[in-house]
Design a binder for these strands. Structure first.
Lengths: 235, 235
DNA sequence: CGCCCGAAATCCGTATACCGTTGGATAGAT
DNA sequence: ATCTATCCAACGGTATACGGATTTCGGGCG
């Protein structure tokens, strides 16, 4: 995420982007410019431009009846993870090298929040804490192009993320992997971070693929179901 | 580059993107929506939306007096190349593995065009042929997310590219490096492609940094000079 | 009772209009 | 002649309006 400069387009854009990150918009929702405009007390154009931007960045797709969150195909997931594997381990390693004490604290705070929500079984909270964790180390990445690219590729998965925590053994595996990464960060060991992040990436890809496969199978059984409201609420 | 679907925004967007790739828009030019609209016989909004999209993708920057091509700082160049180094060698390797005969021919055709324009001293033609070469192998990259990301990162350098061919020894080095890559492609040797592409990336980074450094020094001497027209011409 | 056809609503794409800001130009003063 | 203050035009941002395509809904016919 960058800078909410001061124009209406950016306001709407970052608002929607945040909602996307938090999985507050489901795939059955339809985002309509007039509706968003009304909710924010503005005209169509800024809302529309924000939506178009999200489309051009690949988060949404335009339909004949409103905009919808993009659904990832299995090929998409594989492809996106191939890119992530090339970038994230290396970037995390550089973050481990350059990390400040502040970032370290944020990382630990996020990790604790993850453990808590995992223990409490709150999957939505877990997903949010997960975003915190990645944002924390991403802040330590000096290369802003690298950070922005990674951030973008991560955000594509928000629509599937919640599902990955459903299976307890997968979730446990996720928690272990992240703990290892966290430890390596605390040890300021870039190479360990890199290796563990690489392992984590492969496990994550597996998890996403299997979740998505199940989703697609379920959708094939029952290809019906439509309609949905947006779910906004900002000023 | 994707598909020119059929709406005016896309038409303008791809037109501008092509002009950017061909270095037909200089850093002193100012792109103004009304002007582009008039040239294409359309209203402000589609032109404006295309410009905003280019801004959000990082190709342009908005000023209070029209949009301008983004100038890369030395930090930008280093950062962008760090990402490119992570992606391109690997992607080129996969292209070498999966390449069809058609792509192989295109690659050779581009290589010949590069040699011709290099011998003829036509730098603009050389830059265009360079774009052909990368597009050829990029087409063989199955992962479209990978290809799109690489394509995007390459395009950031169009504003500097022409300058890198100015110095004869640098240009010769560039030609040699590319020839080696081409050979490796023809040999269908993914690992050789990967290694040579890696070497090429480092050399390219050096070249861009030094060109840009000279540009910035020159600009500091003579900080004046303004004004400039767009340079369009489509229907 | 179901299917087909037509009307209405929905929503995207495009056009036009207005306003505030900013940068430059012009004119006046030193 | 140069510096400064004021004015004006250019341009981006936002709002409103219109047209066309597509989907949905309802009524009539088989």
């Amino acid at each position: 995420m960058l800078r909410p400069n001061e124009n209406l387009v950016d306001v709407v854009y970052f608002d929607l982007r945040l909602k996307l990150q938090r999985s507050e918009i489901s795939t059955s929702d339809r985002l309509v410019d007039t509706e968003i405009a009304a909710l924010n007390g503005i005209s169509r154009m800024p809302a529309r431009e924000a939506l178009l931007r999200l489309v051009s960045e690949g988060y949404l797709v335009g339909t004949t009846r409103g905009f919808a969150v993009r659904e990832l195909s299995l090929e998409d997931i594989s492809g996106l993870f191939e890119v992530r594997r090339q970038l994230e381990p290396r970037a995390a390693a550089s973050a481990a090298r350059d990390m400040s004490a502040t970032v370290e604290e944020e990382l630990t705070a996020a990790m604790m929040r993850i453990r808590r929500s995992f223990a409490g079984g709150d999957m939505r909270e877990l997903a949010a804490a997960n975003v915190d964790f990645r944002n924390a180390w991403l802040r330590a990445v000096r290369n802003r192009h690298m950070a922005a690219t990674i951030s973008r590729f991560m955000d594509y998965f928000q629509s599937v993320r919640l599902g990955t925590f459903a299976d307890p053994s997968t979730a446990q595996q996720y928690l272990d992997g992240l703990s290892h990464i966290h430890e390596a960060f605390l040890a300021h060991d870039p190479l360990a971070v890199q290796d563990r992040m690489t392992l984590f990436m492969f496990a994550a890809e597996e998890a996403y693929l299997s979740v998505r496969r199940r989703q697609l199978e379920a959708a094939q059984m029952k290809p019906s179901s439509r309609r949905g409201k947006t779910g906004k609420g900002t000023a």
